[in-house]
Amino acid sequence: MSALIEMRGVTKTYGAFTALNDVTLSLSDTSPSMTAVAGESGSGKTTLARMMLGFINPSHGQVLYQGKDVARMTGAEQRQFRREVQPVFQDPFDVFNPFYRIDHVLETPVKRYKLADSDTKARAMIEDALKRVGLRPQDTLGRFPHELSGGQRQRIMVARAVLLRPRLIIADEPVSMVDASLRATILDELKTLNRELGISIVYITHDLTTAFQICDNIMILYRGNVSEAGAVERVIGAPKHPYSQLLVSSIPLPDLSKAWGGEEIPVSEASAARPNPGCKFAPRCPHVMEMCWDNLPPKYVPDSERLATCFLYRDAPVAASDDVASVFRPPNHSITTTAP
């Protein structure tokens, strides 16, 4: 399998602090996927996104885009990479220059990458991109950012990404600042882009509900380490790692039969976590064992389509490959049109 993007043993440290520890993950070049990366603040999910986008370089390991090391690309290769891998950020308020009309943020990439040879053609491309995210061009173009809602601005950012016909969109918490009622619509649009344009999507989030709904697979990070990964039906539907279990049980569902239990969750954040070379979740883990403090658990495969880095599953086989995606479920939808 050739990889669209591949993280090979990637570690990022800031001084003594390890933001991301030894992550290997490859996303297929041939079948467009939707992969969620989840975890709490400080889990390393944004660090991972920034390395995939080439904004920062790994301290160890490599990020490869179509086999080329992102940190060592030639000018031309980097230009192509910058076009084909597009970000959508969390804050739909900060990314706009309030003095420019919305058109500016859409026209700039068209000019920069010379996507159109005439103004008419450029306009048509922009209108098509807006329609793809459910915005009406006549109601959107010519407006200033403050005239649009947060949800609409976020759609503009998706439209900007679409305009470039990317191969990969890295969406870092794209809906966490948008009302619950609008989230569904924006995420549905990402899913449509994946299906209709064959764009692979990495969806960085702390919201497991939406990850379950739109993604094929998920990777859960805890303090820089992969704690569990695999098909969303496995990892979110029946989590194995105690951290994933805690996350899933904390989702506030609008379903009274799934009320939060009355059990108190230990407030670990109040006490400085004891530094340990072993499992980072050990200080909070209800099932912690003596071995957890000194050794980092390997990637056990307790059942198909998932891995869990937890000694509770030490009787299960260890994953044959370092690549987290080796346990992923292949995307099960067919692509109606292929990317150009």
Partner: peptide, 22 residues
Amino acid sequence: RLLVDSLPGIEVKRELTGIPGL
């Protein structure tokens, strides 16, 4: 009804429905 339905849950995958308009 639409507010309740805009939260999709984690049991079955279904079409995501937002609330149309603003």
